[in-house]
Simulated assay, not measured.
Amino acid sequence: MEITAGGLLEIRITPADVGKRVSVRRVEDGGSGSPSFTDTVGVLTSWNEGVLTITRKDGVSVRIAESSLVAGKTVPPAPARRRGPAASFEELARVTARAWQPLESEPLGEWTLRAAAGFTRRANSVLPLGDPGIPLGEALARVTSWYAERGLPAYVQAATGAAGTQELLCAELERRGWVNEVSAEVRIGALAPVGDLDADVAGVRLTRTPDEDWLARYGKVRDPDLARRMLVEGPSVWFASLGGGRAVGRCVVDGRWAGFGAVTVAPEYRRQGLGTVVMTALARRALEEGASAAWLQVETDNPGARALYDGMGFATHHAYHHFRAAA
């Protein structure tokens, strides 16, 4: 926090700092007669009628009464990724979008409306990588009607922990009653260490299309024909299957990037390293195609997968959230 030469805390932020990353300290009554202090770091997404809203990198918006502030300052953007390849938010957003392509898309300014008959939220949500070209309220009304025409709920995929105005969009969606239905981390890392893992990949079968065993293990398929059509789309897509579907995975090679997804292990075979085996086999194939960096997405409520990826050297680049229009 900001401390003056006299040892006093200072508030060095104003409403003009909306959109900047800030660090603030506020005083709270702990109920015991002695005050306590709480620090919050994030993007200042609004300051209206004596209340500040700060959106943290985990997507949670914290409302703070201006009267409770004891210190505050702007702080530099989040530091560059601690490990793994350098990557901008926009580069990763476009690479991850190409890995889960919709059946139908339509531009709205710099936004992209995507639909795929409801198969995966990623392919059935708006990708807002800039200005929609019209006021936000009109843009969201257009989004809602576009998805309603297709019998689908309206979703917007927005990020936190990323450069630009994504945090502001998250806060505005929340203010307008859109519900953050699910959050996930986008993690990145070097590809070679995954391929170099000591794993016996002899039993892993790699194919260009998913077979019945693969689809059955993936388990998120209501329409097999639609799933096959969707899953094979991408720059260079590979499917891995181990032991007749005991463990499966998917990898999309796109230039320097290899994107891992759909890594699923049968419940009775978990904690035996089969997910690692599948990813190692896919990584070695991606290395043969010239990839050097890796990315994956993991939901924040999946501690087992997050621990696995921690051990492989993947670090969180940013988080994304699927906001659903209020009913």
Score class of each variant (00 low, 15 high):
Glu2Gln: 15
Ile3Thr: 15
Thr4Arg: 13
Ala5Gln: 13
Leu8Ile: 06
Leu8Trp: 09
Glu10Val: 10
Ile13Phe: 00
Pro15Gly: 10
Pro15Glu: 11
Ala16Gly: 14
Arg25Pro: 03
Ser36Tyr: 07
Phe37Met: 10
Thr38Pro: 00
Val41Lys: 09
Gly42Tyr: 09
Leu44Lys: 00
Leu52Tyr: 02
Ile54Ser: 02
Val60Asn: 07
Ser61Asp: 14
Ile64Cys: 01
Gly72Ala: 01
Lys73Val: 08
Thr74Asn: 11
Ala78Asn: 08
Ala78Thr: 13
Ala78Val: 07
Ala78Arg: 15
Ala80Gln: 11
Arg81Phe: 01
Arg82Thr: 13
Pro85Glu: 07
Ala86Arg: 15
Ser88Gln: 10
Ala93Arg: 12
Ala97Cys: 06
Glu106His: 04
Gly109Arg: 08
Gly109Thr: 09
Thr112Met: 13
Thr112Tyr: 01
Leu113Glu: 09
Arg114Pro: 13
Gly118Gln: 08
Asn124Pro: 09
Asp131His: 04
Ile134Asp: 01
Ile134Pro: 00
Ile134Ser: 01
Ala139Gly: 10
Val143Cys: 15
Trp146Lys: 10
Gly151Ala: 15
Gly151Thr: 15
Leu152Pro: 04
Pro153Ser: 14
Ala154Gln: 03
Tyr155Pro: 03
Gln157Ile: 02
Gly161Trp: 11
Ala162Arg: 12
Glu167His: 14
Leu168Arg: 09
Glu174Asn: 09
Arg175Phe: 00
Arg176Phe: 07
Asn180Trp: 04
Ala184Ile: 04
Val186Asp: 00
Gly189Phe: 01
Pro193Gln: 12
Ala202Asn: 02
Gly203Gln: 03
Val204Met: 05
Val204Asp: 00
Leu206Asn: 08
Arg208Leu: 11
Asp211Leu: 03
Glu212Cys: 00
Asp213Cys: 06
Asp213Ser: 11
Trp214Asn: 11
Trp214Leu: 12
Tyr218Pro: 01
Asp225Trp: 07
Glu233Ser: 06
Gly234Ala: 12
Ala240Cys: 10
Ala240Thr: 11
Ala240Trp: 10
Gly243Val: 08
Arg246Glu: 15
Val248Trp: 14
Arg256Gly: 14
Val263Tyr: 05
Pro267Tyr: 02
Tyr269Cys: 11
Arg271Tyr: 02
Gln272Met: 12
Met279Gln: 14
Met279Trp: 01
Ala281Phe: 05
Ala286Tyr: 05
Glu288Asp: 15
Ala291Pro: 06
Ala291Met: 03
Ala293Val: 09
Leu296Gln: 10
Leu296Asp: 13
Pro303Glu: 15
Pro303Arg: 13
Gly304Asn: 11
Asp310Lys: 05
Gly311Phe: 07
Gly313Lys: 05
His318Trp: 14
Tyr320Thr: 05
Tyr320Gln: 10
His321Asp: 11
His322Phe: 15
Phe323Lys: 02
Arg324Thr: 10
Ala326Trp: 03
